[in-house]
Write a protein that binds this DNA or RNA. Sequence first.
DNA 1: GGCTGGCCCTGTACGC
DNA 2: TGCGTACAGGGCCAGC
Length: 265
Amino acid sequence: MPELPEVETVRRQLVPLVVGRRVRAAGGHPSAKFASAQAAVGARIDAVARRGKYLLLALDDDRELVVHLGMTGVLRPRPAGPADPYVRAWWDLGDLVLELRDVRRFGRVAVVRRGDHRALPTLAALGPEPFDPAFTPDGLWRDLRASRLRVKTQLLGQRPVAGLGNIYADEALWRAHVHPAARSISRTRATALHGAVRAVLAAGIANGGTTLRDYRRVDGERGTNQLHLDCYGRAGSSCRRCGTTLVRRVVDGRGTTLCPACQRR
DNA sequence: GGCTGGCCCTGTACGC
DNA sequence: TGCGTACAGGGCCAGC
């Protein structure tokens, strides 16, 4: 599923394809999640930014096109061949058609006034970017202490830091020796988690994202970070740190892999 | 205001 | 072989 490294990889590949091009026509699936794709018609794309897992395409009329890839969303130039029934939105940019293919329809498209994210509550309340100086060990510790939610649930909620999903949350928690279901965390562990979040996301970006099933880069290639995962999806295998067998648990409804020896509560 | 649980959505895996 | 069911999970929302 696209998390920050995957979305950042997509963003970097989108820039040379779409910046400076004008939306000549557009269309979307009739559901409210995608229908507003058409609202971008007539505008020129001036920049492609990212906030957490959201892509923000700045338009020249003081608006922006917001795209969330959900779980199975892929942005790509329209390939030759028969029509694809899973395309949920498309934008004709003149010499290419950019399309959003999203089998499960967990993605979303919106056109809003630039910076006005009231229609997207999670985006509006997003925590700091992980590589921004505003994301600090002490700030993370204070945020996590302020809630009694389980640590992993807080991370997935995007408030302590933006961009983590199930894969990188499991990886960071494993790396920092933090139990995903813990409801409190020491300052030392929070500091370790801060470093782990940055490390796993940086590795994900460097490897072009994690492709387990659906995720593809804009150029259609798979990411390679799945070859470097230490924890996520490795239940039943040995912990690379201590040799204990990794286990799968459900934490607040999310499948979770952890090491019962390294990540004690 | 914080938290919980259910819903959306569809392909895949698995059991019978 | 074919059918039914469970599962995957990010974000939103109703209800407590």
